[in-house]
């Protein structure tokens, strides 16, 4: 089998912030009612992480669990481990009503880095970035398409659908162009 190919072959752009397409990352959509017995234990068994609070993402190394909706979480892990992790999840959840499905290939993932990384996103999303709490996963839109993003020490990770990866890269590049910082220092 071939190596898994990300949507844009790790395209990059350098402006007042730097943009990198990364991935593919392993991603699992897990849907279950939050009061499902054994849910937190199953996620912990699968990923070694606690469940995040509403609109938060819990990260550790190359793994993360993000709150997407009251009955939906996004599990992030190395691409190659998705199959085994799905098996462990399904086994742990057993007959409890849930849906766990591989969405690794349905996504494109971008890194936006640099001290002014937030200004790139400010041009694209109506979300209030300065009100973003530490560890918050925000679902919103980037111009005309859906996205989710969260911040870390070095910048932001932004996830979009794979089919619009080229559009999102175009948006990020346009927004990060040298000379267009919103608050030039």
């Amino acid at each position: 089998m071939s190596e898994p190919a990300s949507a844009l072959g790790h395209a990059t752009f350098d402006g007042f912030a730097s943009i990198r397409e990364i991935g593919p990352l392993g991603m699992i959509t897990l849907r279950a009612r939050p009061d499902t017995p054994g849910l937190a234990q199953a996620v912990h068994r699968a990923l070694g992480l606690e469940m995040p609070a509403v609109r938060r993402i819990v990260r550790q190394g190359d793994r993360a669990v993000g709150w997407m909706a009251p009955d939906e979480w996004l599990l992030i892990l190395p691409y190659a481990q998705v199959g085994d992790t799905l098996d462990r999840l399904r086994e742990a959840l057993g007959a409890a009503h849930h849906l766990a499905v591989d969405v690794s290939d349905a996504r494109a993932v971008f890194r936006i880095e640099g001290p002014k990384a937030a200004e790139v996103l400010m041009k694209l999303t109506p979300a209030d970035l300065s009100a973003l709490a530490p560890g918050e996963l925000r679902r919103s839109r980037a111009a005309q398409v859906a996205c989710a993003f969260w911040a870390d020490e070095a910048g932001f990770t932004l996830v979009s659908f794979r089919s619009v990866a080229g559009y999102v890269m175009g948006l990020l590049g346009h927004s990060a162009q040298a000379g267009s910082a919103l608050f030039p220092s």
Binding site: A143, V145, A165, Y167
Partner: peptide, 15 residues
């Protein structure tokens, strides 16, 4: 704004 040329609208592409 940014919506012109290549990014006038989202263009969806298959793999």
């Amino acid at each position: 704004g940014e919506a012109r040329g290549e990014i006038f609208q989202p263009l969806r592409r298959t793999p």
